Simulated scan of single mutants.
Amino acid sequence: MPIDAAKAVAADPRTAEITWGHKDIQLYHLGLGAGIPATDPDELRYTLESKLHVLPSFATVAGAGMAMMGGLAAPGIDVNLAHVLHGGQTVELHRPIPVEGSARTTARVAAVYDKTKAAVVVLRTEVADADGPLWTSDASIFIRGEGGFGGERGPSDRLQVPDRAPDRTVDRPIREDQALLYRLSGDWNPLHADPEFAKLGGFDKPILHGLCSYGMTLKAVVDTVLDGDVSRITRYSTRFAGVVYPGETLRVRMWQEPGRVQVTVVAVERDEAPVLADTVVEHS
């Protein structure tokens, strides 16, 4: 059934209540590879409840991430989930995420773009607690075979990599069991755990969640450029450019500019195949 873009955008928002606590934060951070070395004071900020801060990318899994993906059930969208890919992600922070919290999420389809052979659905989730707005999250969902309905093509600009050497480059190894641990934060897609299911999807073995690479990259920027201060982050956006497998290594290159860090991420072992592109961390 073709996408009805006007119906999807006009549909009433979906709301839900979510809660989280320090265990959710710690589990998420461990799923990103935090805690190595286990006694490093810089790592204890991610793992020890008495010193805990919250990496802003936690917004993508708060409440098990259901508010974001629930948008694919909106009126006007009837798609085969096997054709769905996560194309991009942006999180805008209105203030630091607390270690313990409860909030209301409001999710809606913000836009539907026609890429001719595919459609891109932008799912927007706004989250607020008793003290006001916390974050706004935009997930760009790429749906193969659903284009050609005559809608707007939407933005397609690509971010140019600076014509100079990166200011910082760090490598982040991905443990063999990392996808198994990360999925405990709410993304149970067997593509990330079941070898047989992964083969059906055209992969030799289970792949790492794109949002895990997203979180690992933000942690690398926080630890390397922002002096470990998560409260400085105001916005973080990326485009998912390729897959990465557990056991591989992410190479994170960073270019520092006033108020922002531009980033590229590649898989070292596969001739630096792109993983994340058009990636920017904005900060105060």
Rank of each mutant, 00 (worst) to 15 (best):
R183K: 08
A111C: 05
A198H: 11
R175P: 07
T90Q: 08
S156Q: 13
G154D: 12
D131F: 10
D177L: 04
D171P: 00
V91M: 00
G101Y: 01
L181Y: 06
T105K: 00
V122I: 14
Q178L: 10
A165G: 09
A179K: 05
V127M: 03
F197G: 11
R104L: 02
A107T: 01
I174A: 08
T105H: 00
G210A: 04
T125E: 04
R108S: 08
T224A: 11
V112E: 08
D194N: 12
V170R: 07
R158K: 14
A110F: 01
W188E: 06
S137P: 01
Q160K: 14
T116C: 15
D129C: 05
H192R: 03
F142S: 05
A179T: 04
Y113I: 01
I97V: 10
E92Q: 03
T105F: 00
E196K: 15
P98V: 03
K115P: 14
D157L: 04
E92Y: 00
L200V: 15
T116V: 13
S102K: 04
R153S: 14
P206R: 04
Y182S: 05
L93C: 09
A130Y: 03
Q160S: 15
L208E: 02
P190G: 12
I141Y: 07
E92D: 06
L134N: 05
P173G: 04
E196C: 13
P133S: 02
R175N: 07
K117D: 15
E146Q: 14
R172K: 13
D171C: 05
G201K: 13
I233E: 03
A198W: 11
L181K: 01
T224W: 02
E176P: 13
T169M: 09
R175F: 09
L191P: 12
I97R: 02
A111G: 05
E152S: 13
C212A: 06
Q160P: 14
F197E: 15
S137D: 02
S137Q: 11
D194E: 09
G101S: 04
L200N: 12
G202Y: 11
D177H: 08
V161Q: 12
D227E: 14
R172E: 07
H192A: 07
V222F: 04
F203W: 13
A193G: 10
F149G: 13
D157N: 10
G202W: 10
R168K: 12
T116F: 14
I143Q: 08
V161M: 08
R95N: 06
D114Y: 13
V122H: 06
L226E: 07
I141H: 07
G154Y: 11
G202T: 12
L211Q: 03
W135V: 08
P195L: 12
G132W: 03
R124H: 00
G148H: 15
G228C: 06
L123W: 02
S156A: 15
V121C: 08
T106F: 00
E196G: 13
T234S: 10
D229I: 06
D171F: 02
V230Y: 06
A220E: 02
V121K: 08
E146N: 11
I141G: 09
A165R: 11
L218V: 07
L134A: 04
V222M: 09
I97F: 01
P190F: 10
